[in-house]
Design a protein around this nucleic acid. Sequence first.
DNA 1: AAATGCCATTAAATCGATTTATCAGGCTAT
DNA 2: ATAGCCTGATAAATCGATTTAATGGCATTT
Lengths: 340, 340
Amino acid sequence: MKKLSIVDIANHLNVSKTTVSFILNGRAQEKRIGKELVERVQKFVDEVGYKPNSLAKSLRTGKSNIIGLMVEDISNPFFSAIARLIEDRAYKNGYKIIYCSTDNDTFKTRELINMFRDRHVDGYIIAPPEGIEDDISSLLKDGMPVVLFDRHLPNVSTDFVEIDNLFSTYNATKHLIQQGYKNIAFITFASGQTQMQARLQGYHNALNESGYKPVVQEIVFNQNEDLIIGPLTTFLKKNKKLDAVFFGTNHVGTCGLKVINSLGIKVPSDLALVSFDDYDVFKLFSPPVTAIAQPIEAIADSVITVLLNKLSTSSQHISSQSIILKTDFNIRGSSKSLIN
Amino acid sequence: MKKLSIVDIANHLNVSKTTVSFILNGRAQEKRIGKELVERVQKFVDEVGYKPNSLAKSLRTGKSNIIGLMVEDISNPFFSAIARLIEDRAYKNGYKIIYCSTDNDTFKTRELINMFRDRHVDGYIIAPPEGIEDDISSLLKDGMPVVLFDRHLPNVSTDFVEIDNLFSTYNATKHLIQQGYKNIAFITFASGQTQMQARLQGYHNALNESGYKPVVQEIVFNQNEDLIIGPLTTFLKKNKKLDAVFFGTNHVGTCGLKVINSLGIKVPSDLALVSFDDYDVFKLFSPPVTAIAQPIEAIADSVITVLLNKLSTSSQHISSQSIILKTDFNIRGSSKSLIN
DNA sequence: AAATGCCATTAAATCGATTTATCAGGCTAT
DNA sequence: ATAGCCTGATAAATCGATTTAATGGCATTT
């Protein structure tokens, strides 16, 4: 009842395991193995449902058919949606996914990379935290395929998939300004990551053009939501002159809505809202929240396509490519015109 | 620059790899290996940062230190939250997680189980779809540790973690009745899974006690949300006499809210709401939705604890245990009293 | 003095595959 | 006749660990 090995197959058919291996790996013709022998082996293998032990296979070949996926936090809807799509595509192409959440913690990420390495994953998909440059570089130096997404590392030359963060916030801020809002705050997580910096820059650019004063509030990320809601509450209580708020991520946005509810702030008459990312919470809030929607499918698709490419061609020569995707700007009730 | 193997270590120190292996696996004392030799080996291993090749290790020992986690859909907040917590606990205990989404598809699940098996995972955590009984039984027969959660399989005797579904819906339905609602519909995904059946039963029990007529609408699950929203819209348009609706899952609930918004139904004056599961969407809706909150942490904790136990003791003798956890009932504005 | 036991260590087998190198036999060309 | 070349297949090496069985040397027992 125990699992069959290639030796069992070989013995039962009175051939050598080499022959079986060649046949199973489609090298029968190349190795000019007799046609009826090939059929005999194939038939028996199908019959007993033999599957090669993938550990042994990996040990010998050095390939594991596993892709390591590192997101910031799998329980964040943005990341879980992307993970889901990547998962599907990967499975369809014969790859499994091992995933984990980095929490944007450099040390944790480093450990996880080492674990993946130890596990001999074939490729890496990473939403990298800051400070992990050296570890990524080291992966690259060893010829490991790595695709970054959601952000990139300026000093590391590798493939990555991102969205046009700067234009997205520039455009959305412009929209607020056109609706007549003048005191627009930008609330975001404190982070030097490229995507956050770009978002901030877009906001600044738009305000500069109009000559309005920027008001930026950075929140320290914390797993405990109360430690986000607290500072947010303080900020909104203090800055009564604001007429609009721009949330830099879906998480900040969600927390922001909770604060707005608890303070009894009316949207958009007291305060207009725009948020980065789009998901059910924003669609179902009253009034629904204007949001920048990231093209989840396109991101996942690009990421996995780039990685699969690298895995199949193992072309060291092709220099890294970066893919920048457009976002959708979904205007809803939370940023209605002041002038009507 | 390539990775060191145990042979390299052994050669460099002029000892046999057996000795190195014993030392590294903490069997030095048992094998009475000299104290200073142990230290010499340890020191060198630390120095060069040698890590045993886990594939080779797994091949030899049959253990992979990987746990297979199969949820219904990783992009569902309930499952992603649990996955996240399980992930953390697993990593802390030296286990990695391979996860995947079953889509409640029996065939897909069967393939995934085979894949996990092939990958030699040490244990399984599964939210099982119907029809997968035989595959689970076969795992158990082969002595694999399996823990089910969110639902169980009546004909399979294995450990599982669930919540008290029947009481939860019974209690919530009672609440609606006490608030004066009489025409209460229950909308849920068509499914014979134990948790869904129990939820339905709880609803029926409460209505029976009061003599009100049950109205049950089953929706066929689909990845494409429009195919859920469509039938839901039809249903709510047809049944104008309803004064309350009970959503059987967070997903149905979210879709339900979208329909309610698009139809312009006023909550709770036109229609009171209660939903199973609790998450940000329900808290931030206006008015906030009364919901049954599952104890996410407790579920994740129980699941991983039970599994780790089975993994460490490998006690075939202990009969399976089932853990039933209590839920929280969060009463909010969407189910306010009719009588005031 | 031979036998036994203990100590500290190691050689060799094993896990289950892939891959390299080899082989026996028949045929062709010099 | 013999060297060389296909053909069709396989023996043996390899991946990098764990584990079983064995070893040589020394002290102790009979």
